[in-house]
Simulated assay, not measured.
Amino acid sequence: MIGQLPMAVPDPALPSRVRIHEVGPRDGLQNEKTIVPTEVKAEFIRRLAAAGLDTVEATSFVHPQWVPQLADAEQLLPMLEGVGARLPVLVPNRRGLDRALALGAREVAVFGSVTESFAKANLNRTVDESLEMFAPVVATAREAGLRVRGYLSMCFGDPWEGAVPIERTVRVARRLLDLGCDELSLGDTIGVATPGHVTALLAALNEAAVPTDRLAVHFHDTYGQALANTLAALRHGVSTVDASAGGLGGCPYAKSATGNLATEDLVWMLDGLGVTTGVDLGRLTATSVWMARQLGRPSPSRTVRALSHQEP
């Protein structure tokens, strides 16, 4: 399947190693119109881990009414025993955390918003109310010894409100970090960010005492800017990047959001830059081709198509 690979030309301005936070099984599959069988999800996660991805976000404990595609979380997690990767799960509230704890989850994530419009659409709360809801969730998770990630959506633009002022993103990010999150993932939920905007936001976060080593980036490729934005973040020192195998995903509450940055496209770029990821591109591509067959359509990832000769 794999033919030519990129020639590595290292860039000393970049981190020597990048940790890829794989979100395909959760953020990718939650946006599929058809519900993927639990056994297929488990096999997908096992294959991703075998390809070298050491962090694979497994599922979400959101109420099944809101995300029916992930209603099988209780059935899925026990099937993943022995998978050699970190398996964080999304928890929307204390009830979701309790369900995750009962199944032995060791890492969780909460999902907040910078903008009022998206907070209302996604959480049916204001930004402040959502942060108040997260406070006991994060505190309880930390007390139980869990690692906690905070997702922050609409950091660059909102489909209802337009461009998001940098200072607003900084304010909400600082508050989420102050709740006790170990890491913040900055989401370009509708894919409108550009490299200059990314650089300016990261600089402003540093000025607000948000350390770069506690930040991750999560780009969508709506306007073809995801890789360029990722490179801008890497040049600023960010070394954790969210991506989705095969470019799966979007956002069920933001219809203008298209697929996530494809993990294969990211790995191709990082391999060419001499940045270590630990990911076997051949095995990863084969996994995405396999999942595309389960979904009945080709992968949108350009790298998957190029290396596997899939037709668009």
Rank of each mutant, 00 (worst) to 15 (best):
residue 61 F to H: 13
residue 62 V to A: 11
residue 62 V to Q: 14
residue 62 V to E: 07
residue 63 H to A: 15
residue 63 H to E: 14
residue 65 Q to L: 13
residue 65 Q to G: 13
residue 66 W to T: 13
residue 66 W to S: 12
residue 71 A to M: 09
residue 73 A to N: 10
residue 73 A to T: 11
residue 74 E to M: 09
residue 75 Q to M: 09
residue 77 L to V: 02
residue 78 P to W: 00
residue 78 P to I: 03
residue 78 P to T: 01
residue 80 L to W: 06
residue 83 V to N: 12
residue 83 V to G: 06
residue 85 A to F: 05
residue 85 A to W: 08
residue 86 R to L: 14
residue 88 P to M: 03
residue 89 V to F: 05
residue 89 V to L: 04
residue 92 P to I: 00
residue 93 N to M: 01
residue 94 R to G: 13
residue 95 R to S: 15
residue 96 G to K: 12
residue 97 L to R: 06
residue 100 A to L: 06
residue 102 A to R: 07
residue 102 A to W: 00
residue 103 L to Y: 09
residue 103 L to M: 12
residue 103 L to C: 09
residue 104 G to M: 01
residue 105 A to S: 13
residue 105 A to R: 14
residue 107 E to P: 11
residue 108 V to K: 11
residue 109 A to K: 01
residue 110 V to L: 00
residue 110 V to A: 03
residue 110 V to C: 03
residue 111 F to M: 02
residue 114 V to W: 03
residue 115 T to K: 05
residue 117 S to M: 12
residue 119 A to E: 05
residue 120 K to I: 09
residue 120 K to Q: 15
residue 121 A to K: 11
residue 122 N to L: 04
residue 122 N to Q: 05
residue 123 L to K: 14
residue 123 L to F: 04
residue 123 L to Y: 06
residue 124 N to E: 05
residue 125 R to T: 07
residue 125 R to K: 12
residue 125 R to D: 12
residue 125 R to A: 13
residue 126 T to I: 09
residue 126 T to Q: 06
residue 126 T to G: 14
residue 127 V to P: 08
residue 131 L to M: 10
residue 133 M to Q: 10
residue 136 P to N: 09
residue 137 V to E: 07
residue 137 V to P: 03
residue 139 A to I: 01
residue 139 A to Q: 13
residue 141 A to C: 05
residue 141 A to P: 08
residue 142 R to P: 05
residue 143 E to M: 02
residue 144 A to T: 02
residue 145 G to D: 03
residue 145 G to S: 03
residue 147 R to M: 12
residue 149 R to N: 05
residue 149 R to T: 07
residue 150 G to S: 02
residue 151 Y to P: 01
residue 152 L to T: 02
residue 153 S to W: 01
residue 154 M to A: 03
residue 156 F to K: 05
residue 156 F to G: 01
residue 156 F to R: 10
residue 160 W to T: 15
residue 161 E to N: 10
residue 161 E to W: 05
residue 161 E to G: 15
residue 162 G to S: 08
